[in-house]
Simulated assay, not measured.
Amino acid sequence: MSQRRTLLLVAVVALVALAGCNGAGNAGGSADMERADGGAAVSATAAPEATSSGGSGGSGGDASVQANVQNRALIKTGTVRVEVDDFQRSKSNLTAAVAGYGGFVSDTTQERHGVGNETYTTGRLVLRVPAEDFDALVEDAKAEGDVEVVQTNTEDVTDRLVDLEARLENLRAQRDQLRDLYEQANTTEDVLAVQRELSDVQGEIERLEAQKQSLEDRVAYSTLTVELREPRPTPNRVAPDRWYDTPVLSAFLQSVDGVVVVARALVVGVAYALPYVLAFVLPVALVGGVAYRYRERWLPHQ
């Protein structure tokens, strides 16, 4: 019994070590392939510069570089904010455009706001379209009204996908070997030990497969978030039909405003009149005062 457990433990350890070696080999192979591809691309782009004619060699180098770029896994996302005249009409237009591209609307939000007796609508659409139609959808969104914000982003996830695939291959090989050990186990303890390892490996495989599937889905279908907003209306104050319909507080405040206006008008009127007083009235008053004093002093009293 002890010898069998020892052999089983040695087999599991050897299996893990073998999986690690395979992972390192695959990772190294992937890195070597990427370096080789990169070297080929650099050589292809450098060839036209090295030759003076630049004929067919230059065309071949450009084609290689373009093919290398097209093989990259790119996730495209973007945001467009537009002020539109009619929210519902713009929403219908964009929904139809997405359907025409073979995409779909993944999320929508809509909110109605009130300003006085007027209302306006704002909302957001999350649109998913094939990656090759992303730029066309951005232009469709911009054509709906006055563009306020346009933001796009591209993320290269090629290396992440390559790494996930290499790890999945190693884990699948490890799972197959654990299944063989499970079939060969004779005791309950050995069966449970291998089963635990097999469950852990299977859980890791499912987790990595979900990550890989999510990345591939985001690469295949780009995401554009479109924010639509109708213009905010300006509230209009409606005056009461009769003066006695005015609320008491409003009437008092209006009276206070009237007093302030009258006081200000008086101050402004004094400011306007003061120069005339100084220029005309004051000299006349001074002359009159001097004449009165002269008369009182020099003329005899009757």
Rank of each mutant, 00 (worst) to 15 (best):
V129Q: 06
E148F: 01
E132V: 14
G123P: 06
V149E: 14
F134E: 05
R124H: 00
E148M: 13
V150G: 07
A131C: 02
L125T: 03
V147C: 07
A143E: 13
N153F: 03
L137K: 08
V129P: 06
A143H: 12
G123D: 03
T122S: 10
D135A: 15
T154I: 14
V149N: 07
V149I: 11
D146M: 10
V129C: 04
T152H: 01
E148N: 10
G123K: 02
N153P: 06
V149Q: 08
A131S: 12
Q151P: 01
A143M: 05
R124C: 01
T154M: 08
V126D: 11
E144T: 11
D135P: 09
V150S: 11
K142C: 09
P130N: 06
A136F: 01
V126H: 00
V149T: 13
G145N: 12
D146G: 13
F134P: 06
E139I: 04
D146N: 15
D133N: 15
F134T: 04
V150T: 14
V150W: 05
T154A: 14
D135Y: 01
F134V: 09
A141W: 04
A143L: 02
L125I: 03
Q151S: 15
V138I: 14
V149W: 02
A131W: 10
Q151H: 09
V147W: 02
E132Q: 14
K142M: 11
P130I: 09
T122P: 01
V150E: 14
K142I: 07
V150Y: 03
E148I: 11
A141N: 05
V149C: 03
K142T: 10
A136R: 10
V149M: 06
V129K: 01
V147M: 07
V138D: 05
K142W: 03
Q151G: 04
E139G: 08
A141G: 07
E132D: 15
G123S: 02
V149G: 03
L127S: 05
N153T: 11
T154Q: 11
T122Y: 00
D140G: 01
Q151V: 03
D146H: 08
K142V: 05
D135M: 05
T154E: 15
L137W: 08
T122C: 01
T152D: 02
E132A: 13
V126M: 03
N153I: 00
D133Q: 15
R128W: 00
L137Q: 05
R124A: 08
E148R: 15
T122Q: 01
A143Q: 06
V129L: 02
A141Y: 09
L137I: 10
R124P: 00
V126I: 06
E148G: 13
L137G: 08
P130Q: 08
